[in-house]
Amino acid sequence: MAQSPTAQVPTTEIDDDPDGRARFDELIAADSRIEPRDWMPAAYRKNLVRQISQHAHSEIIGMQPEANWISRAPSLKRKAILMAKVQDEAGHGLYLYSAAQTLGTPRDEMFQALVDGRARYSSIFNYPTLGWADMGAIGWLVDGAAICNQVPLCRASYGPYARAMVRICKEESFHQRQGFEILLELMHGTPAQRAMAQDAVDRWYAPSLMMFGPPDEESVNSQQSMAWNIKRFSNDDLRQRFVDMLVPQAEALGVTLPDPDLRFDEATGHWAYGELDWHEFQEVLGGRGPCNTQRLAHRRAAFEDGAWVREAAAAYARKQADAAEQAA
């Protein structure tokens, strides 16, 4: 009985398997892990495929805004760092596609959905990188928000997802720091460089706060995800944690966070922040952001231009296998 431990493709989900459900509930209640071949509710599987593949797509689309500056990085050291970082994002996409594939959806299928525009990815990557300082702002703010989101996912109930997140979090520890360093260097530089840094922070601050998703009362998937131990903290909790971390860091940098309503609330012990533009968020999510079309076209072009290469390698493998069989 050849069974891949990581790429099981169940044809039907038996949702009324009482033993399976009891075992699943028991594992979730004990905060243990669900593994690929365990019985799981169809909705749990579906929810995970959606979340993990969206996460993977975000890594892959997320390569583009930064890849935009690899060729122009202003020093060779920064060029090397940026290349390594964008490469990591490809790697993280791969880890996540692997994790999603253990739920029975092949990567090519997820990828096809992405290039066909049928899949979602994080809205943040639909904003343009207009200057070098954006590399700093993305590292500090976007990766900072991503890390806040991802650290709790290292304890997600689905084993392969949690394991992928552990690896990703370890590797990403450098991403935020390098971004912070870029901004710090700029803030200690010429007036033009300081202006560059502030401009980038102005543009990336609010979108990075929206990365945690809509406010809790409007978040459709959150409740169920928390019950299943996939999500551990609510969107607003994570957003608050992020803002609380940002304020002293902004001070260390010497940049101003573009929120006139930002103030320390003695009563809660947290930094209160102003209203976010959720209309803007929905617009970008709905495909009407500054770069949605461009990002998808870039991904689709790479996918289509590479088809002949993938086919060549597959054909070569078949020919070699046939030749080996003939010889045997």
Partner: peptide
Amino acid sequence: LGWWISRGPELEEDMALANIALDLLGHAR
């Protein structure tokens, strides 16, 4: 080679080309 990062024929090849580019950039530096 840096141009290929995000444009490779397959994601695994993005990784490989980036590794080669990083090696070469190291030599250059």
